[in-house]
């Protein structure tokens, strides 16, 4: 057998192993969500029993809704603050404390969530002690998630701002734009894809966060990951499989749709560029 076929067999085998490692657990979960048995590890026969149970499980449903709400709001907050931070770091090259800000902005990325959560908790408790608010609950979770999300959003927006031609701003001003018009007419439309991806990223981060939420939530505010986590400790209920499967299906559809869209756009652009080239050579 030649070296090339050997390599090919090995690389295919490796690919299969990696895919199994990544997706076998998820596949198992999906399959077992259709299992009729009450025991999570024994297969009896297929049924939608746990999906019915899920619909009736008000606790879990309200936790999902709460998680969506927190993820949505905190992602918006993250993108808002992250964009401002990224602008400050990229467009204003010299100001006092720039180096400090740039390292502080990315600190939450490397800081363990447990530490961030604990320190936020301590801070909130003492603030509450002095001022009488905020009570632990929706607001404090939002605060924690926005803090973490802002760091991620800053990174995403910064990378886009860096590759954007700074001359575009100057060209806009040269053609009569006042500074706010430059943002509104040129910078924002060009930044939009980055803002969308920053939103999706921070949304996901918030949606599956369990550590920060556990520290910062108060009575009556349990997010979906918290509910799943606490139920898992009491012994897993197959309803969790059902809610996980629903989540996986939604996420998979979104990912497939977005990658189709991106590759379609890329192909279209390539075609148009080729067209432009052949036109100019006529």
């Amino acid at each position: 057998m030649s070296q090339a076929t050997n390599n090919k067999i090995f690389s295919n085998l490796w690919m299969v192993v990696v895919y199994l490692f990544l997706y076998l657990p998820i596949l198992t979960l999906v399959v077992y969500s259709f299992n009729d048995s009450k025991l999570i590890s024994t297969w009896t026969h297929a049924s939608l029993r746990w999906y019915e149970a899920l619909i009736k499980d008000d606790d879990l449903i309200s936790a999902v809704l709460l998680s969506l709400k927190i993820a949505g709001i905190s992602a918006l907050m993250s993108v808002f603050f992250g964009t401002f931070t990224a602008f400050a770091l990229n467009r204003y090259k010299r100001f006092k404390g720039r180096t400090l800000l740039s390292s502080m902005a990315s600190m939450p990325l490397v800081m363990p969530d447990v530490i961030v959560g604990l320190s936020l908790l301590l801070m909130i408790i003492s603030v509450q002690h002095w001022l009488g608010f905020p009570d632990k609950g929706l607001f404090t979770i939002l605060l924690g998630h926005a803090l973490l999300g802002t760091a991620y959003a800053t990174v995403v927006v910064t990378s886009r701002l860096r590759e954007m031609d700074g001359r575009l701003d100057e060209a806009a001003m040269d053609l009569g734009c006042k500074p706010w018009q430059v943002f509104h007419l040129v910078t924002f439309p060009l930044l939009l894809p980055a803002l969308v991806s920053a939103f999706l990223l921070t949304f996901t981060l918030s949606f599956d966060d369990v550590v920060l939420s556990s520290f910062l939530s108060g009575p009556g505010y349990s997010t979906m990951p918290m509910v799943i986590f606490s139920r898992a400790r009491l012994g897993l209920n197959p309803t969790i499989n059902a809610v996980a499967t629903v989540t996986i299906v939604v996420v998979t559809c979104a990912v497939i749709a977005s990658s189709f869209y991106t590759s379609h756009q890329a192909r279209k652009r390539k075609r148009e560029e080729a067209q432009a080239y052949s036109d100019s050579n006529k």
Binding site: L168, M173, D174, L175, G176, K178, P189, L190
Partner: peptide, 20 residues
């Protein structure tokens, strides 16, 4: 005077055409 108030226009080396 700021650039947007000058009756002067510039053609940039990189062209700086608005891609969108």
């Amino acid at each position: 005077l700021p650039p947007y108030q000058r009756p002067i226009n510039m053609m940039f080396q990189s062209y700086a055409l608005f891609p969108h």
